[in-house]
Amino acid sequence: MAEPTIALEIFRYHPEQGEAPSFRRYEIPYREDWVVLDGINYIKDQIDGTLAYRWSCRMGVCGSCGMMINGTPRLSCAAFLREYFPNPVRVEPLAHFPVERDLVIVMDDFMHKLREVKPWLIRGQETPLSEGEYRQTPAEVDEYKQYSMCINCMLCYAACPVYGLEPRFLGPAAIALAQRYNLDSRDEGRRERQEVLNTEEGIWDCTLVGECTTACPVHVDPAGSIQRAKVTATVDWYKDVLLPWGKR
């Protein structure tokens, strides 16, 4: 019996060849326990060494290997060929990002935005290490834990039509990470971050499509984080308007 095979149709683009992108079809062996990334590695090693893509951990935690798989943003190390077999699988670089080459996207934009939201603990007063840890109960950890799970895989940006239409939008992961610190009981930087969040390109660009949350492989729920940030910003606004004297 012939070994079963499966076709991968892969987006190819090379800046030096100056041509428009095209799809190339590769026929590879089909294995029950292979993920799409295994298939791509097979192509790279055995068929075509020119294919460019990113990967490392192959266990869903480094965030390198996001791709559009049949139109849906997925981690290629967590998407099994068996979910698609016997149909061909179409593999493209993550939507909405410029493409450097083949499946490699340019993610400078996110790296800038990440820094803009100040994703570090901000304290008025640093306590010396000799005084031990800042106390934080398990319930206080739970407040922000979910938002701290972001692996920066960019699937949510690829899922977000708002980001596709308005690239200046801060976007799901950056906002979720801002909220991760805002909700941390050790942090005192919420007002500072709010200056970036509470803007047109910040949380208010979001029209609540909710697809970022669906796409997120680690259940960060960025859509929820944005909604919560909106509620907080609104409460802040009422407080400032109704109790102007109570302003810090």
Binding site: Y13, P15, G18, P21, G71, A95, H96, P98, V99, E100, V106, P161, G164, L165, V209, G210, E211, T214
Partner: peptide
């Protein structure tokens, strides 16, 4: 020379959630 893709006007027809 990064390649930029544009969103088609029919983007909202491409997926059930959209």
């Amino acid at each position: 020379r990064p390649y930029r893709r544009t969103m088609p006007a029919t983007w909202w027809l491409t997926n059930r959630a959209y």
